[in-house]
Design a protein around this nucleic acid. Sequence first.
DNA 1: ACCCATCTAGACAGCACATTCTAAAACGTG
DNA 2: CACGTTTTAGAATGTGCTGTCTAGATGGGT
Lengths: 193, 193
Amino acid sequence: MVRTARFTEDDFIEATVALVAEGGPAAATMQAIARRVGAPTGSIYHRFESRAAVLGAAWNAAYASFTAALTPLLQAGRPCEAALAILPWARASERRARFLLLHEPVTLFEDTPPPPPLRAELERLEEGFDAAFRACIAARGDGILRDEDLARAKFLIFDAPIAILRPHLQRGGALPPFAERMIAELHAGMPLT
Amino acid sequence: MVRTARFTEDDFIEATVALVAEGGPAAATMQAIARRVGAPTGSIYHRFESRAAVLGAAWNAAYASFTAALTPLLQAGRPCEAALAILPWARASERRARFLLLHEPVTLFEDTPPPPPLRAELERLEEGFDAAFRACIAARGDGILRDEDLARAKFLIFDAPIAILRPHLQRGGALPPFAERMIAELHAGMPLT
DNA sequence: ACCCATCTAGACAGCACATTCTAAAACGTG
DNA sequence: CACGTTTTAGAATGTGCTGTCTAGATGGGT
């Protein structure tokens, strides 16, 4: 009935992630994405309504992959293992890790925000991740949940491990074995509650 | 002999810092900087050779201010106090903190790197900061300095405190009092060596 | 063999930006 | 009080980008 597509949505997303990971957000122009896929620029607009939509879709995909790796461990009340799970995830997909962990959304979306459907999807993902944090605290906590408790959990499980990885992600080399040790020691010395 | 300048180099640097802090790097166009200062765009080029030079000068100034606040404490072998010193520094100059701590250099300089003199100045600043870290470790260490020790010190004194502040810097509100507590507890639970 | 919705293909228009250019204004010194 | 230098002032230029437009290719269903 119709012509079969030579390029998939994922082709463009993957190229976008790679370009941002290698050269920052400004390196991911529509022409660079197209060139990397081997497609003409116009083809991107058959799948995405704008550049912001491509970046948004790429961000959502990376975020979903990341949270999927941690959420089960959080829900099981294992904060230290969740924090450590970031390492194999980052090692398995270095480009996605660089894309997601090295760039703030404000830098990616400062000019034009992604279209509403993508924003809504990201909000759902963020709420799910947040709920997992709350569940993790509740699993070992005493009842009341203060702002400070949530901030503390996010630091221990998310921000601090990423801070440990960031220098190595930037340099581009392999993640050193002592990263594991530092995360484990952090959790031993500074418990959740 | 010559016409006196109405606008100083610092006027432009300050405007650049403010614009990036408020709207990300892309908000700091030459025209936006000029408009904020109240100058014509051409005047910027009497002081800076390019946009990259303005951003580079702003970055160097912010970095110098930041490291100046921490270096004496590092050299005195007081890592925990150095980490805590980030808080008053960030509170005193919120815009500078947002500019420096919320944006990776790769995002600011991805298109065009700053001119060589500014790059050289930044390298000197970075080397000085690095030396202070080594001095701090040596002040309480046992002799040999491994990669891991330096990475550990930078995490405890620099990256981890910033990770604690980052969510609050992004939101733009005041830095909460429990930030102090978390940093102190981190250093109590996970010593330098 | 034909049809036609969907895709490839790439040129094109419009826009925003960095940088340059021209003209005029200021100012302290001789 | 004129001169030369530096600055203001903002228009003009050139570039590179996003998003659009036209033409043609494709391939399964009939």
